[in-house]
């Protein structure tokens, strides 16, 4: 019983991180119609900024993290404004290739500036809780609890933002029909830049939360990005709640596969499960029937 609970908690933690990544990817996809392949790398690049402020400049942790998130927002918004907007009129494919190019640029830059070394990043909160249930014991890190809280807060915040604010409504409208949104007087350019900014910030936040265990290095976000994409597909790719459900589910499935069947095969086995789900329901768990933007 305690093993089950322990694995569930770890799975939820991994799932929350995957869900945050999936949420950012889906948000950018929904509003601007492009899958951002550079997503994880932009998060990785942002956390190096936090690392530099923390260790080279000597700024406190909270300040370094804040700067990192502001940097990520600016990075996302200016990538949209300066690069993707320029090829928007060509095709969605051109934008996709551009994000692949950005992936290589950020990878190269990080390797040049910070080398391939693994660097440590502190937990935002330290300490471990031990809960005794009968004869078993549950070990829960405070950082893991924080991850769950932060992910839940962001998801709730985004939900409220999209449902109840004017800008949130404008983002939803733009995602559904860009030309109609323009005709209603919405500055869609601002909306695109905004969703890129928020999306990439989510990537930076997941990097900050994951870094104490993955360490900081140029490829640190690769596994999360792949699983984030998978979680997003599982959820339907064009649905924000779907990204959350798909992400968390993927994390939990993976954890149980690792614990009960085989640690080595956990990724393959979870992908197999997802394949079966998609065979039965091709639009994903919560996706709309037809996804038009590719």
């Amino acid at each position: 019983m305690t093993t089950f609970l322990q694995q569930l908690i770890l799975g939820l933690r991994e799932g929350s991180l995957i869900a945050l990544v999936a949420l950012g990817i889906v948000m950018i996809f929904k509003t601007t119609g492009v899958v951002n392949f550079a997503y994880g790398y932009m998060g990785m690049f942002s956390i190096y900024i936090a690392y530099t402020f923390l260790n080279t400049v000597g700024a406190p942790l909270w300040l370094s993290v804040t700067i990192c998130i502001i940097f990520a927002f600016t990075l996302g918004a200016s990538a949209e404004r300066g690069l993707l907007r320029q090829v928007r009129h060509l095709s969605k494919g051109a934008m996709l290739i551009l994000t692949l190019g950005m992936l290589m640029i950020f990878e190269g830059l990080a390797l040049q500036i910070w080398k391939q070394d693994y660097r440590s990043f502190p937990n935002l909160v330290s300490g471990v809780r031990i809960i005794t249930i009968g004869t078993g014991r549950l070990v829960i890190r405070n950082q893991d609890i924080l991850i769950l809280i932060v992910a839940a807060a962001i998801m709730a915040g985004l939900f409220i933002y999209f449902r109840y604010t004017k800008t949130g409504l404008a983002i939803r409208a733009t995602a559904q029909n860009e030309d109609a949104a323009k005709l209603m007087g919405i500055k869609v350019g601002v909306i695109f830049a905004l969703s890129w900014g928020v999306g990439v910030s989510l990537g930076a936040i997941s990097a900050v939360l994951a870094a104490p265990r993955t360490f900081i290095h140029p490829y640190m976000m690769l596994p999360l990005q792949i699983r984030g994409l998978t979680g997003a597909v599982l959820g339907g790719f064009d649905s924000l709640p779907g990204a959350v459900v798909g992400g968390i589910l993927l994390g939990v499935i993976e954890q149980f596969m690792g614990a009960y069947i085989s640690e080595e095969l956990k990724m393959a086995l979870s992908l197999l499960i997802i394949l079966v789900v998609l065979l039965v329901k091709p639009s994903g768990l919560m996706g709309s029937k037809a996804i038009e933007r590719v």
Binding site: L169, Q176, N177, A180
Partner: peptide
């Protein structure tokens, strides 16, 4: 033309 509503709003 074609109304161009926001179907999921």
């Amino acid at each position: 033309e074609g109304r161009m509503l926001f179907p999921s709003l």
